[in-house]
């Protein structure tokens, strides 16, 4: 589903191409075109800002799924140091759809766990597009318990279309694996910060998402079902852009929606043109947020931390009485 080019970004590509051509021309004929390029680059920033300010929910889904966006692997490189990857669930096998290990954030040891969907086709296949089997969630839980044992905070990155639906996944207890994570995360005696960096798809996302702070990148989405699945079930049409847009709008899956519904705590802004336009700046914002939140959470005693986390999730829901 990752889109190499997004229709609504065409004006941006067009302008970028013009600037590149001008630069090339200038290089060939050794002309000074700084005066011509400066306004074009200013225009590019404005264009990116304008387009990204008025994205529709379905366009945000496209952005969230883009394979150009920074992935867990990128954040590990850009926000952390000393990463040592840990593999396997100690029961069945290694699942590359979720990666994790020890790392340092601002010099302090943390456990980083995230869905990793891979940038190119080969990696996509190896990592099953970030759709984990039960062993992926069990590995994640193993690492979380390990972090708890050594009083180390857990940082998760959520980026998955959902948990894998297949024979082996069902046989080995996909439901149980996800449920166990929700259960254990709700009482893990160490700080947990979760950040949705791309697509937060249903139970497969929540299995890394029961946290003291839940963040969403500005253009990420978080949903109980994919827009395609929702449109297919309710309106018998999961393919047409109209029905997908209808579902994307109805489900309220964007970061501002979730903040309003009190499901997440904070939105991490993306640079003009989206996270994919500037990995370094995005990673810097993520890093700043994590460091700040961790500093707050470290002050709380484990039992108070757990109580607050629980109360936070117990409050979620809207009904009449």
């Amino acid at each position: 589903m990752a889109t190499a080019t997004m229709e609504f970004e065409k004006p941006i590509y067009e302008l970028e191409r013009q600037i590149d051509e001008l630069k090339k021309l200038a290089g060939e004929q050794s002309l000074n075109v700084t005066d011509e390029i400066a306004p074009l680059e200013k225009k590019l920033v404005e264009l990116r800002t304008d387009i990204y300010r008025s994205l529709t929910p379905l366009q945000r889904v496209q952005v969230a799924r883009s394979n150009k966006r920074p992935l867990t692997d990128d954040y590990l490189r850009l926000c952390f140091t000393d990463f040592i990857e840990l593999h396997g669930d100690r029961a069945f096998r290694e699942d590359a759809a979720i990666m994790g290990g020890w790392a340092r954030l601002d010099g302090e040891t943390v456990m980083v766990i995230g869905h990793e969907r891979g940038r190119d086709t080969k990696e996509n296949l190896r990592r099953n597009f970030g759709m984990a089997h039960p062993e992926g969630y069990r590995k994640a839980l193993r690492l979380m318990k390990l972090a708890e044992k050594f009083h180390v905070p857990v940082i998760t990155f959520i980026d998955t279309p959902g948990a894998w639906a297949g024979l082996g996944a069902e046989e080995r207890g996909q439901s149980e694996a996800i449920a166990r994570n929700l259960f254990e995360m709700s009482r893990l005696e160490t700080p947990i910060i979760a950040t949705v960096i791309g697509e937060g798809g249903s139970g497969g996302a929540l299995a890394l998402g029961v946290a003291d702070r839940v963040n969403m990148l500005e253009n990420s989405v978080y949903s109980v079902i994919t827009v395609e699945g929702c449109a297919a079930i309710l309106w018998k049409d999961g393919k047409s852009p109209e029905m997908r847009e209808k579902a994307a709008t109805a489900l309220r899956i964007t970061a501002p929606d979730l903040l309003e519904l009190k499901v997440i705590d904070e939105i991490i802004p993306e640079p003009a043109g989206g996270a994919h336009a500037d990995h370094a700046t995005t990673a810097a914002s993520v890093q700043e947020t994590l460091v700040r939140q961790l500093d707050e959470l470290r002050r709380l005693k484990p039992d108070k931390l757990v109580r607050r986390r629980r109360e936070k999730f117990l409050r979620i829901g809207q009904y009449a009485e």
């Binding site: 449920a179 929700l182 995360m185 709700s186 249903s202 139970g203 929540l206 998402g209 029961v210 978080y222 949903s223 109980v224 109805a250 489900l251 309220r252 899956i253 929606d257 979730l258 519904l261 499901v263 999730f313 117990l314 979620i316 829901g317 809207q318």
Partner: peptide, 11 residues
């Protein structure tokens, strides 16, 4: 009920 339903799992 969108993501509110999803969160009932955690709750």
């Amino acid at each position: 009920e969108g993501v509110l339903s999803l969160m009932q799992m955690a709750k």
